[in-house]
Amino acid sequence: MSRILSVENIEKYYGGRGIVTKAVDGLTFSVDEGEYIGIMGASGSGKTTLLNCIATIDSVTSGKIHIEGQDISNMKASSLSKFRREKLGFVFQDFNLLDTLTAYENIALALTILKLPFETIDKRVTAITTFLNIDHIMNKYPYELSGGEKQRVATARAIITNPTLVLADEPTGALDSKSARTLLDSFKKLNEKMASTILMVTHDAYTASHCKRILFIKDGKLFCELNRGDANRKAFFEQIMEVVGLLGGELSHDV
């Protein structure tokens, strides 16, 4: 298994003139191909900052981030755009679909930005939407879709480019529990059947319990790491709750 992501001792500081906030303070970890990894932490623990740095939306103050061996911490803006569209896929809490485009067009957009010919685009969109069971809503606009449907469309858009790494930021945050379950099933399917590497940030223990490995972050530092191993989801959930308890019980408790 090859190494997809390696984060080496990164730090991210905000502020200046004496008052410095360390959002991320010396984190080191790595993700291998085909992994389904969760990052948990309370509000303000630095998990979103970490995700933004990996997503190349934000830059680190010190340390290095390698994705597929490429150092992204000192890339130029133009090559970062290229890197983003070719190697990364994003799923956001608030879906971030374009309200002016249909579901089909929203998914196709990720490929048109890559300047692929239409025949390829059409073939790939059809394949991925069939895979995620959303082919019946392709001609609808975002406002005609439910939250769960929107998030699955966003997921399709994230993975259609066959990205090296899928980054999900609280993907179930705006969903009801049934939609959340359907979405997490989709993620599982992606990870198992299509071997997508997924890195998910969440503060919801139930959502996190679908991952294979979880990193806990507190005050910008790695607090501990949990491996699911052969345990079933229920047992893994119990383990997560224990750590959450240790962290100070700031995380949500709903199952």
């Binding site: 002016t100 067009e105 196709a108 239409f118």
Partner: peptide
């Protein structure tokens, strides 16, 4: 003309305009 419509950001521009 699907090839043109699905090229770069053309689709986006058309939809923006339509909107």
């Amino acid at each position: 003309k699907k090839r043109y419509y699905f090229q770069s950001l053309n689709m986006f521009v058309m939809r923006q305009l339509n909107n």
